[in-house]
């Protein structure tokens, strides 16, 4: 008798290297992030976000809140570029975004604590 495949309970976490999102516009990155987050996947992005990108992430996720999606939790370490990095980004027109971002639906992820150099999260399993 064939065994029925059991669906595993738990929270899926995906770690994304910088190269996966490279070359995409930020709107395309947001589409990607939102699709994953709304499928209850917690994403860990190697690349940090600029304040403008964080603003867009909040705006987009809040716009998509409905009865089934209550919004997001996100945390991250922020880079603190020195004067040399700032000049370089002005000269090259490219901002190198150091840091790390963790983002997930607030249905499955709860932020417990966040400091400049420490983040603690609780993954909720219903």
């Amino acid at each position: 008798m064939a065994r029925k495949k059991e669906k595993k309970k738990g929270v899926k976490i995906e770690f994304l290297s910088r190269s996966i999102l490279e070359g995409k516009s930020f709107d395309e990155k947001l589409d990607f992030i939102m699709e994953k987050v709304k499928s209850d996947v917690i994403l860990v992005l190697e690349e940090g976000l600029t304040p403008e990108e964080k603003k867009k992430l909040i705006e987009r996720s809040v716009s998509e809140i409905d009865d089934n999606f209550p919004g997001i939790e996100f945390s991250g370490f922020n880079s603190n570029p020195g004067i040399f990095e700032k000049i370089l980004s002005v000269l090259t027109g490219q901002e190198r975004k150091e840091g790390l971002v963790i983002v997930g639906s607030s249905k499955i992820m709860e932020k417990v604590g966040e400091e400049k150099d420490m983040i603690s999260l609780l993954a909720k399993m219903e």
Partner: peptide, 17 residues
């Protein structure tokens, strides 16, 4: 409350920029 949240960092970062 803990001040170091992404909402606060985002508001301040955008205004500063």
């Amino acid at each position: 409350k803990n001040p170091y949240t992404q909402v606060n960092v985002t508001i301040l970062g955008n205004l500063e920029a």
